[in-house]
């Protein structure tokens, strides 16, 4: 699994598509890729990972368990997520929880990722 992070609108998806010569059809946008599809394909991209976490929490799910168990079965995934923790503590309890959980999930994914890149202005810095 590879992890690509960065602020909003930094060109993360375009960077990944061109680096790995992948088409838009390989992109799962804000949803977890399907098991059967992952078995058939070499590499899939999961974009807007942070939004998936947000929806998952809203629906009472546990994003930590879901993503880790998916990765236990399939490691051929490039996960793209916004960094959302670089701001003032939100007033709304849900927003605080969302922000903190995204941060901690990304720390865990970074630990198991074979590569972590941070994209700023379309330029990637390899940090792991």
């Amino acid at each position: 699994m590879k992890l690509v992070i960065g602020g909003n609108a930094q060109g993360k998806l375009n960077y990944v598509l061109s680096k790995y010569h992948l088409q838009e059809e390989m992109v799962w946008d804000g949803v977890l890729p399907d098991h059967t599809v992952l078995q058939q394909r070499e590499t899939m991209i999961m974009n807007h990972f942070h939004l998936w976490i947000r929806n998952c929490i809203s629906n009472g799910g546990c994003p930590e368990d879901e993503i880790l168990s998916l990765l236990d079965c399939h490691d051929n995934l490039i996960i793209i997520s916004d960094e959302i923790g670089n701001g003032i503590v939100p007033l709304e309890p849900f927003e605080r929880e969302y922000r903190e959980r995204v941060g901690r999930i990304l720390v865990r994914l970074a630990e198991r990722a074979e590569e972590v890149e941070r994209v700023i202005c379309g330029i990637a810095q390899k940090i792991k």
Binding site: E83, G85, V89, R101, G103, R104, V107
Partner: peptide
């Protein structure tokens, strides 16, 4: 330095 939940 780091953001919320960054592991700082």
């Amino acid at each position: 330095i780091g953001g919320s939940g960054s592991g700082k």
